[in-house]
Nucleic acid binder design. Sequence first.
DNA 1: GCCAACGTTGGC
DNA 2: GCCAACGTTGGC
Length: 151
Amino acid sequence: MKTEPSVFSFEDLVKAPGRTTHWEGVRNYQARNLMRDEFKKGDAVLVYHSNLAEPVVAGIAEVAREAYPDPSALDKKSEYYDEKSKGVSSWVMVDVKATHSLATPVTRTQLKKEPALKEMKVLQKGARLSVQPVTQKEFEKILALGKAKKL
DNA sequence: GCCAACGTTGGC
DNA sequence: GCCAACGTTGGC
């Protein structure tokens, strides 16, 4: 899951109560469908910091609660307000809980150097989706590269 | 700051 | 339903 750290970072997640937050504000149908249909409680999540000079996988989390309606779509004061969602939010969010910190965040440069990660979705050109699938092998490789430590 | 790659909008 | 124009994302 991508996030801009100036908006919400992995460190913010670690500091949140219960190390858990609502991952609100996803406003793309493909990303929504992934969260709604594929995200199961306990699934592992890579938290990726985008839009930096050096983008990184910043930490590891898990799905703490499966998809449920995202009320920010109905909140006029929210920056995620969606005026087409009249009364019913068809957007969803999940709860995400930080589970591991990385001794060293894994940079995009590092990711690109790894032959085992060549197919990784987030490395493909034009991959803008804010939620993207990762394979078990890719996930484990990144855990090792970052020297993941349980929180 | 540039620009490629998408996604969305709206006229027709 | 097509497609041009526009907006956004995000790597570089």
